[in-house]
Simulated assay, not measured.
Amino acid sequence: MKQHSYFVYMLASRIGGTLYVGVTNDLERRVEEHRAKTVEGFTRRHGVDRLVWFEPHGDIRLAIAREKQLKKWNRAWKVRLIEKANPNWDDLFLALMAPYHNRPASPVIPGER
Score class of each variant (00 low, 15 high):
residue 1 M to F: 04
residue 1 M to I: 04
residue 2 K to I: 06
residue 4 H to E: 14
residue 4 H to V: 05
residue 5 S to P: 00
residue 5 S to R: 04
residue 7 F to W: 13
residue 7 F to E: 01
residue 9 Y to R: 02
residue 9 Y to F: 06
residue 10 M to F: 03
residue 10 M to N: 04
residue 10 M to G: 06
residue 10 M to Q: 08
residue 11 L to S: 05
residue 11 L to T: 02
residue 11 L to K: 01
residue 12 A to V: 04
residue 14 R to E: 14
residue 14 R to Q: 14
residue 14 R to L: 08
residue 14 R to V: 08
residue 15 I to G: 12
residue 15 I to K: 12
residue 15 I to W: 02
residue 16 G to I: 06
residue 16 G to Q: 02
residue 17 G to K: 00
residue 17 G to V: 01
residue 17 G to D: 01
residue 18 T to F: 03
residue 18 T to Q: 05
residue 18 T to M: 02
residue 20 Y to M: 01
residue 21 V to I: 15
residue 22 G to N: 08
residue 24 T to W: 09
residue 25 N to H: 13
residue 27 L to E: 07
residue 27 L to V: 09
residue 28 E to M: 11
residue 29 R to A: 14
residue 29 R to L: 10
residue 30 R to L: 04
residue 31 V to N: 08
residue 31 V to I: 15
residue 33 E to A: 13
residue 34 H to K: 00
residue 35 R to H: 01
residue 35 R to T: 01
residue 35 R to Y: 03
residue 37 K to G: 12
residue 38 T to M: 03
residue 38 T to V: 14
residue 39 V to L: 07
residue 40 E to S: 15
residue 42 F to A: 04
residue 44 R to V: 07
residue 44 R to H: 11
residue 44 R to W: 03
residue 44 R to A: 13
residue 45 R to D: 10
residue 45 R to Y: 05
residue 46 H to W: 06
residue 47 G to C: 01
residue 48 V to G: 04
residue 48 V to D: 02
residue 48 V to K: 00
residue 49 D to C: 08
residue 52 V to S: 09
residue 54 F to S: 13
residue 56 P to G: 04
residue 57 H to D: 04
residue 57 H to P: 00
residue 58 G to T: 06
residue 60 I to N: 09
residue 61 R to W: 09
residue 62 L to A: 15
residue 63 A to E: 01
residue 64 I to P: 00
residue 65 A to H: 09
residue 67 E to S: 01
residue 67 E to Q: 11
residue 69 Q to F: 10
residue 71 K to P: 03
residue 72 K to D: 02
residue 72 K to I: 00
residue 73 W to P: 00
residue 73 W to S: 08
residue 74 N to I: 08
residue 76 A to W: 02
residue 77 W to Y: 14
residue 77 W to C: 12
residue 77 W to H: 15
residue 78 K to R: 15
residue 78 K to A: 14
residue 79 V to P: 04
residue 79 V to T: 15
residue 81 L to C: 13
residue 82 I to D: 07
residue 85 A to N: 13
residue 87 P to V: 10
residue 88 N to I: 03
residue 88 N to M: 11
residue 90 D to I: 02
residue 90 D to V: 05
residue 91 D to F: 02
residue 91 D to V: 06
residue 92 L to M: 08
residue 92 L to F: 05
residue 92 L to R: 08
residue 93 F to E: 08
residue 94 L to R: 13
residue 96 L to Y: 09
residue 97 M to V: 15
residue 99 P to G: 15
residue 99 P to I: 14
residue 102 N to R: 07
residue 102 N to Q: 11
residue 102 N to S: 13
residue 104 P to T: 07
residue 104 P to V: 03
residue 105 A to C: 01
residue 106 S to I: 05
residue 106 S to P: 00
residue 106 S to H: 08
residue 107 P to E: 10
residue 107 P to C: 04
residue 107 P to S: 11
residue 107 P to Y: 10
residue 108 V to Q: 13
residue 109 I to Y: 09
residue 110 P to W: 06
residue 110 P to F: 11
residue 110 P to E: 11
residue 111 G to D: 02
residue 113 R to H: 11
residue 113 R to Y: 10
residue 113 R to L: 10
